[in-house]
């Protein structure tokens, strides 16, 4: 083995050596981080921070705290369309063709009375209107005015079985359709958020019927979480006791792809 000889009493040599050391350390850190990013166990370890965030936010009053509501003056001039621009299935095209007259929202799973509701049924229910800030995971925010019945009212009508723990939203769009036919958008929330007074199923944005880009005819608003939780094109709400049997098992399209299931951060 060769020995590294350090020039003695030569600060320049030492400094050069130290500089090389620091550069080597930096390069090692970079490739090390990239290698760790490919190790599933390490990624799971990093992901453990999510449950800490969830518990602490719930502990700090995250059960009942309300998201801020804004005034008309705060509305974003343009509310950015993100994610799916329009679902590209023949079924959705047919629904759109009919002006969503034949569209039905199905509520089933661990409920006592499964429901099939038309847009007219939803419009006939007590409505909530809220001007809130939408925060995309990418970093931008937009303020919009949403209107629709609360999810709590819908769930009370369907009646929950005692084992129900999550509300799952099945959507009409495939954001990335895989060869095996998977890739359909879905999302899920716990019952704390499901019964939160600001959690609504919006059919109107800024006093107009929801556009296709924004999720026509119905989208979820769960105001204390990020944009990807605000499922668009909601077709069915399923009450379940667990999430591991859906999609890739993480409770949502983006959670299946590495994003947090609890997107309050």
């Amino acid at each position: 083995m060769s020995r590294i000889l350090l020039p003695k009493n030569s600060p320049l040599g030492r400094r050069k050596f130290l500089g090389l050391g620091v550069a080597g350390l930096g390069a090692g850190l970079l490739s090390g981080c990239d290698r760790l990013s490919e190790a599933p166990k390490f990624i799971d370890m990093l992901g453990s921070a999510e449950s800490l965030t969830y518990r602490i936010q719930r502990f700090l009053g995250g059960g009942s705290a309300l998201a801020r509501e804004f005034s008309e003056a705060d509305l974003s001039p343009v509310f950015k369309v993100n994610g799916t621009q329009a679902p590209d299935t023949p079924e959705y095209a047919a629904l759109q063709e009919s002006g969503f007259a034949n569209w039905r929202l199905r509520i089933d799973g661990l409920v006592t009375k499964p429901l099939d509701l038309s847009l007219a049924d939803l419009r006939a229910m007590p409505q909530r209107t809220q001007i809130t800030r939408h925060d995309c995971v990418e970093g931008w925010s937009a303020i919009g005015k949403w209107q629709g019945p609360t999810l709590a009212d819908l769930l009370r009508r369907a009646g929950l079985q005692p084992t129900a723990r999550f509300a799952v939203f099945h959507c009409a769009d495939f954001y990335e359709r895989a060869a095996d036919g998977t890739g359909q958008y879905y999302e899920s929330i716990d019952l704390i958020d499901a019964f939160h007074p600001q959690t609504i199923l919006a059919h109107r944005l800024n006093d107009e019927a929801l556009s296709v880009g924004h999720g026509a005819p119905l989208r979820l608003r769960v105001e204390r979480q990020l944009g990807y939780k605000q499922a668009k094109y909601v077709m069915r709400i399923e009450l379940t006791d667990r999430l591991d049997h859906l999609g890739l098992g993480k409770g949502g399209f983006w959670p299946d792809r590495g994003y947090e299931w609890y997107a309050g951060i």
Binding site: D34, L46, A49, T53, Y259, I265
Partner: peptide, 23 residues
């Protein structure tokens, strides 16, 4: 690339690293 963790583009992984080390 040398300035980001991970070096390739991944918002999901960047957030995982960020929030774990934030705690």
């Amino acid at each position: 690339r040398w300035a980001t963790i991970p070096g390739w583009r991944s918002l999901a992984l960047g957030r995982r690293w960020h929030f774990f080390f934030a705690w």
